[in-house]
Design a protein around this nucleic acid. Structure first.
Lengths: 143, 143
DNA sequence: TTGTACCGCTTGTGTTTTGCAAGTGGTGCA
DNA sequence: TGCACCACTTGCAAAACACAAGCGGTACAA
């Protein structure tokens, strides 16, 4: 750690071009598998993805699990620490929505639109949904 | 731009280890001069600082001005686009406050504590203060 | 008018991280 | 037994970063 500033703590973990995108994929697009992260629009490289997934697991932001259906596959899911990044991601999304000149993807605009209307109630609701899923997956993995 | 995702727009601008720290310094610690940014705890290098300041100015997140008191110096200040990053920075701070094992700097804890108690009212109040200063500086520069 | 201190910023260098392509070892299923 | 597919590694070139030194310009004091 470079300093005792709380902002810096977050930046040292997800202050790069890829980490938050992986979390976004888990959080909003239901992606769970290595291959799914690779197929995202931004096009992360395989070595960087492996590196980030390992880091996120070490930081206890995501968790590795086995897929009972497809036994070769590894399931990645958010921990509560990861789910708590929801406000961070929404804030960045809202800011970008306000200032980006690019056309926004309508799917994402739906999410952003919801958050824009009622903050922080919208965040709470979304968080609850994510937590429900989180608990389900946790139980599944511990079976 | 790698994609049309709004999250990605923000990440492409401030998704690195330094940019948000500079904005933090402007926003919370009243830093205005090149030298002041250099003296922050994290220790940014001079070339990287110059690079990020130029980028932030290009993105219209900060603005360069002349100092009427100390004529050699260049004054950097946040634009409204920059001020609107306040929620992003606070969200990261709150998350870190919850999960960082490190001891937090008490000065920063004050700010974080305020934000924790009443979001988004706390954010609104802080934003208003920042905007007041922003207008003042703008007028000064246009004299 | 000259000297000096200080300003933002650049340059040069070695190191680390990234980006891209190809390949590897391991597992499950036909 | 063979093949397809899985997460992940390796090799290499290019870019970004970190660190130290230095540069041109301005202001102010002698």
């Amino acid at each position: 750690m470079r300093s005792d500033c709380p902002l810096n703590y977050g930046i040292e973990i997800f202050g790069d071009k890829w980490t938050l995108l992986i979390i976004r994929d888990l959080m909003f697009f239901g992606k769970r598998y290595y291959n799914e992260f690779l197929s995202s629009a931004e096009g992360i490289a395989t070595n960087l993805l492996a590196d980030r997934l390992a880091m996120l697991e070490k930081e206890k932001i995501i968790r590795k699990g086995k897929d009972s259906q497809h036994k070769q596959k590894i399931v990645y899911s958010l921990t509560e620490k990861g789910i708590d990044l929801l406000p961070v991601i929404l804030c960045i999304g809202l800011w970008s929505d306000k200032y980006a000149s690019i056309k926004l993807n309508p799917n994402r605009d739906l999410i952003i639109g919801d958050a824009k209307k009622n903050l922080p109630r919208g965040i709470d609701k979304m968080k609850k949904n994510l937590l429900k899923e989180h608990v389900k997956l946790k139980m599944k993995n511990e079976e």
